[in-house]
């Protein structure tokens, strides 16, 4: 949960930062229908304002980001020059036990190069070619039976 919140926070901070940059340089995000220098947003019902924090009121949709399990997309709502809400428009949920996944961070799983080990084992587990060979052999046999 913690790691997911951290990732979301980092992402949202990035969104806010990029919004801040855009507001500061008077460049309008393509996802906001707003004309340059108009000083107002067409998507807000609040009084337009350009506060000293640099955020313009309105609703701003961030880019879609690949979060490995799926996509994340957020919408930031600015009112009175401050972030009043952040909504998830998309989050990874197309998975079994999606509630469980969403409450977890993307795990960093350990990896290693495979290496031969001592063969002192009782049983061996591995994909078998026998089943496939069985099918092939059966095919040949049946062909002869025609």
């Amino acid at each position: 949960m913690k790691k997911f919140l951290v990732s979301a926070f980092v992402f949202i901070t990035f969104v806010i930062y990029s919004l801040h940059q855009r507001v500061a340089s008077n460049v309008i995000s393509p996802t906001v229908s707003q004309t340059p220098n108009s000083g107002s947003s067409s998507t807000t019902t609040t009084q337009p304002s350009t506060s000293t924090t640099g955020f313009k009121d309105g609703q701003y949709t961030g880019d879609i980001v690949d979060a490995y399990y799926g996509n994340v997309q957020v919408k930031a709502i600015i009112s009175g020059g401050k972030i009043t809400d952040i909504q998830f428009l998309d989050y990874p949920r197309d998975r079994q036990q999606s509630n469980y996944i969403n409450s977890q961070a993307t795990p960093m799983l350990r990896t290693e190069a495979i290496q031969a080990q001592s063969a002192n084992v009782d049983i061996i587990s591995g994909a078998t070619a026998t089943s496939q060979a069985f099918i092939q052999s059966l095919g040949f046999a049946l062909a002869k039976a025609k």
Binding site: I114, Q115, A116, Q117, S118, A119, N120, V121, D122, I123, I124, S125, G126, A127, T128, A129
Partner: peptide, 21 residues
Amino acid sequence: NWRIGIRNPFKEFKENEIVKV
């Protein structure tokens, strides 16, 4: 406890090389 070896998928079956126990 029973010891199980995971077979190396890159080797021929008759070699039965283990990569993890």
